[in-house]
Amino acid sequence: MTDAELAAHLAQVAGRILLEVRASGMFEGKSLGKAGDQTANQFLCHAVRAQRPDDGLLSEESKDTAERLSKKRVWIVDPVDGTREFGEERSDWAVHVALCVDGRPETGAVALPGLGEVLRSDTPGALPPAAKTPRMLVSRTRPASEAVAVADTIGAELFPMGSAGAKAMAVVRGEAEIYLHTGGQYEWDSAAPVAVALAHGLHASRIDGSPLIYNQQDTYMPDLLICRPEWSERVLAEVGKLSA
């Protein structure tokens, strides 16, 4: 099984496990989110260690160690991206599985179990046609002020959505043109979505245009831009004006 096949298989199976946890009726709300996180994390971590024992591993739901920093190849997983949405029985949540090599997100899969879909870096499709009026995805609960300001400047429509993975994949799926985030995330929030987005020909970077580098000692990532390539220069320029 190739790395890409493994990433997609793990994301799909974890998604199926999460749907079963939700359908069990034994949990609701925050307890449902916690049960989903723990169950999916246990599966993903055991599977990665069994299938790729020499690689490093970083998961949102496991205690981080310095061991991964010496590894060339590191798997970065988020068992439930959008725990709140999962607990609320919405569909805008995801499972992330990525392989980063020398800090670059080379392989990834993002499962959208609520939609029955897994998007993969090894099977990129053509981007759907862009809308005439750009659509910008923002957080359901805390839209970043920079995103709102840029949307006003370029005439974009704002679309609130749940998890980072769901938003990034909405751009891949042609449901939006721009995902601009400045509220802070962690490596597991974007590694797999960025791998998939880049494979599909999208732009992905920090909001100053610099590349996204993973497997850092500090896993905090302040900002992110994933968008159609025809919008990257304009959005980066407008963001730059805000910080000038």
Rank of each mutant, 00 (worst) to 15 (best):
S62C: 04
S62Q: 10
K63F: 07
D64V: 04
D64S: 10
T65C: 14
A66K: 02
A66G: 00
A66M: 02
A66H: 00
R68M: 06
L69V: 04
L69H: 04
S70L: 08
K71S: 10
R73G: 09
I76P: 06
I76Q: 06
V77I: 15
P79I: 10
V80M: 07
V80Y: 09
V80F: 12
D81G: 07
G82E: 09
T83V: 08
T83R: 06
T83Y: 14
T83N: 06
R84M: 15
E85A: 07
E85Y: 14
E85H: 12
F86M: 12
G87F: 08
E88W: 09
E89R: 15
D92G: 10
D92K: 10
A94R: 10
A94D: 10
A94P: 11
A94V: 03
V95W: 01
H96A: 05
H96C: 02
H96K: 04
A98G: 08
A98E: 04
V101S: 15
V101Y: 14
D102P: 15
D102F: 11
G103P: 13
G103Y: 08
G103K: 04
R104M: 08
R104T: 00
P105K: 03
T107V: 15
G108Y: 14
A109W: 00
A109D: 05
V110W: 04
V110P: 01
A111W: 00
L112T: 01
L112W: 03
L112E: 07
L115D: 13
L115I: 01
V118A: 05
V118Y: 05
V118R: 01
L119M: 01
L119D: 03
L119A: 00
L119N: 01
R120L: 04
